[in-house]
Computed example of a mutant assay.
Amino acid sequence: MLQINFLTEQEMYKQICQSLVNKRLALNILQKELAVKAGISVQTLVKFEAGDEVRVLTLFKIMRALGEFSRLNALVIEEVESPKTIHESKQHSKPGRKRARKK
């Protein structure tokens, strides 16, 4: 198993390309069939499978057509708190200042 932290962006891209080629072959789908299903040209798919860079949207179309789109869930669903929300929550969690009582 590869440690993706040690891969360059180009190496990671090639790994993704190869993984999706392997998926297509495992499903016994022809390039022409996948291109039609993904709504892209066969030429674009051939370039992608050869490791040439394609647009991110094209990659998403290929992933969806192969049933691999759900792998992106972690990136899409993860909720990131905005700086404003973090600041407001810290303001509410601090105990308020109290005045000294007169004796």
Rank of each mutant, 00 (worst) to 15 (best):
I77F: 09
S82T: 15
R64M: 04
I62H: 03
H92I: 07
L20M: 04
F48H: 01
V54P: 14
L72D: 03
Q3P: 01
L59Q: 08
R101V: 09
E53W: 08
I16A: 01
K102N: 11
K23D: 15
C17Q: 00
E33N: 00
K90M: 15
K47E: 07
M63R: 11
D52A: 02
K61Y: 05
A65M: 11
P95L: 12
Q3N: 15
I77D: 10
T44W: 00
E11N: 03
S89G: 11
H87W: 08
C17Y: 00
A35S: 07
I16R: 03
A35N: 02
L7D: 13
L75K: 01
T85M: 10
G67T: 09
D52S: 15
E78A: 05
N22S: 05
K103N: 10
V76D: 05
K102V: 13
S19N: 11
G96I: 11
K32I: 00
L25H: 07
V80R: 12
S41L: 04
I62Y: 03
L59E: 01
V36M: 06
E79W: 14
Q91E: 14
V46T: 06
T8L: 10
K102M: 09
F6H: 15
F48G: 03
Q15V: 07
M12I: 15
G67W: 06
Q31M: 08
L30Y: 13
R64H: 15
K84E: 13
L66R: 01
C17I: 00
K103I: 11
R99Y: 10
L27M: 15
K103C: 04
K32V: 10
Q31V: 10
T85W: 15
A26G: 06
S19F: 12
I16T: 10
V36G: 08
K23Q: 14
A38K: 10
L57D: 12
E53P: 00
T8M: 04
Q3F: 01
K103V: 05
V56R: 06
I29S: 02
F48A: 15
I29N: 01
D52R: 13
E81A: 10
R55Q: 07
K37P: 13
V76I: 09
R55K: 08
K98Y: 08
K32E: 14
I40D: 03
G67Y: 12
I16P: 00
V42T: 08
P95C: 08
H87S: 12
E79Y: 13
I86L: 12
C17F: 00
T8C: 04
Y13K: 06
E9T: 04
V54Q: 11
Q18A: 02
L34T: 05
Q10W: 06
R55M: 09
M1G: 14
K94I: 13
E88V: 01
L57A: 09
S41W: 02
R99N: 11
K94N: 04
V56S: 02
K47L: 09
E11A: 11
A100G: 14
T85P: 00
I29E: 03
I40R: 07
F6C: 07
F69A: 12
G51H: 13
V54D: 09
K23L: 14
F69R: 11
R24C: 11
K103Y: 06
L59Y: 14
P83R: 03
